[in-house]
């Protein structure tokens, strides 16, 4: 009687151990890799945007004229970082004001304006810059790295970075007047 019980237990155990060890190992490795992948994705999603007062990580932008600009090069200056696109109608509403503000601040050398062209085509972008006679450095957001870093939600969006390289102010949507831009920049210069 005991022998038969013993035999059935062994058979059950053998059936349970039927999967080869390498399959089990592979399955667990795949599961861990998959969980790690989800973890990395969640971390990225939950990282959130750069908040006011936070140090802005360094980035570089190659302008349409081929010059490379690093944020770290502008330490000690106020940086006005404007995201725009030629296909964006509200962007054209503020283009003239931004250029006017740049021309006001350029002689002082305390403020730098940078235009980041978001998911645009170069011919249209250059036409846009020519149309509004924009003279401050503008360049494409290659692989949308800069916009992803700031987690922009659309265009136009403008980020003001203070002299210490910290994010000071964010404007979502177009500026309605030159005074609006000046109010923010002057506040940072004081």
């Amino acid at each position: 009687m005991d022998q038969s019980v013993d035999h059935s237990t062994k058979t059950a155990t053998a059936e349970r151990r039927s999967l080869p060890a390498w399959v089990v190992v592979l399955a667990f490795a795949a599961l861990i890799a998959f969980l790690a992948l989800i973890g990395v994705g969640l971390r990225r999603v939950q990282a959130g945007p750069i908040v006011i007062g936070q140090q802005v990580p360094d980035f570089s932008m190659t302008s349409f004229d081929g010059q490379t600009h690093h944020l770290s090069d502008f330490k000690g200056k106020v940086v006005v970082l404007n995201f725009w696109a030629s296909w964006c109608a509200p962007c054209s509403q503020e283009a003239a004001e931004l250029e006017e503000a740049w021309r006001n601040y350029q002689p002082g050398g305390e403020v730098i304006f940078l235009g980041v062209d978001y998911t645009d085509t170069e011919p249209e972008a250059l036409s846009y810059l020519a149309k509004f006679d924009i003279t401050y450095p503008n360049g494409p957001d290659l692989r949308t790295r800069i916009s992803q870093m700031f987690r922009i939600t659309g265009v136009p969006e403008t980020y003001f970075i203070d002299q210490e390289g910290k994010l000071a102010y964010v404007k979502k949507g177009p500026f309605t007047s030159l005074a609006e831009i000046q109010a923010v920049v002057d506040g940072l210069l004081q």
Partner: peptide, 20 residues
């Protein structure tokens, strides 16, 4: 590469389980 490797691994596991 991770996506493609994982996809391959899942396919292999699915085939092994199906055969068993």
């Amino acid at each position: 590469w991770v996506f493609y490797v994982l996809l391959g691994v899942f396919v292999v596991i699915a085939v092994v389980v199906y055969i068993r």
